[in-house]
Amino acid sequence: MTNLEHIRTAVNNVQFNRFRFWLQIFFFALLVYGGYLGIELGKHLPTFACGYNKELRGGMCFLMPLQHWMEWPWEKLFSAAALTILYGFAIFFLWFIALNRGWCGFACPVGTIQDWITSLRRWTGIRYSRYSEGQYKGLGIIKWVLLALMFLIPLGIGGGWFTHDLKSPFCMICPGRTVVPLFGLDVSQWSIDFSSRTNMIMTSLGLLVTGLFFIGAFVKKRFFCFYCPMGALHYLFSKAALLRLNKEGAKCTRCGDCYRVCDLQIKEIADDIQNKNIMTDDCIMCLKCVAACPEPGALKATFAGIPIFEATEAGFIKRMNKGRTDDK
């Protein structure tokens, strides 16, 4: 065995959940507390590094500048000034293609917080909920609606149809705005703004969603990710990304182990044996499915075509405690 194969085996046998837990902590620290260390990754991050987290944040969620740009008066939006927007998109895109939706599965602070809430639930021994097939299909549209509104409302402001109080409409209902600053001991987002009707409604809506976020994330794994317009935006570009989730249909037994562990209940991961690129619009690329696949090579994560994490029998047996001899 060469060194490379040794490394590959070690990676494939990794206790994935533990690895992911620490990686998530790393990203969380980077994005939520990075400001302390003077880290500034810019305002084009394809993940919820919330801008409301003031000075602490190590970078900013792209949705914030994006909505802001969309609010420009139209004569400006459709002028040479739009080059700023294109430039912004380009930076966003460069960030994005590196990790694809791994940004959601590993880096997103809101996602990480949801995973922590899930751990809390697991600790209390309460079972999780799943959507029925019908609910899944119906609710799956929401993220696209949110994405559309996120563009249309600011455009409407720029066009003069909506009040400026509606600005950054998605930020107003995003649980990231209320939850992430809490980690900087900032509770200022937890208030209702009575200064105008719009403000009152939007801030109330924001806290309503926050409430739902906590309940949802408690009973449903990765509750918010299913509705996240950032995820929908990601999906539009995912085909160009370097990090990929690939499936070899011929090796798949459709045992459904991957579907079993999928936080977002993606059935295609188990059932689709035609497509090599298996990522759906809901996929957060947490790669739990790869870790839970017992068929060697059936699922793999590749970076620029090079497999970096692959399903193996030995890895599965290790992770699922199959070889345990300590019973009785």
Binding site: W190, S191, S195, S204, L207, I215
Partner: peptide
């Protein structure tokens, strides 16, 4: 003059309590 934390916390608390209860009963 125009911000209310009481209302903010109230709304989220209300949602969490009643939403949680609803989920519990539903399940």
């Amino acid at each position: 003059d125009y911000r209310s934390y009481a209302w903010g916390l109230g709304i989220s608390f209300f949602v969490i309590v009643f939403g949680g209860l609803a989920v519990y009963l539903y399940r």
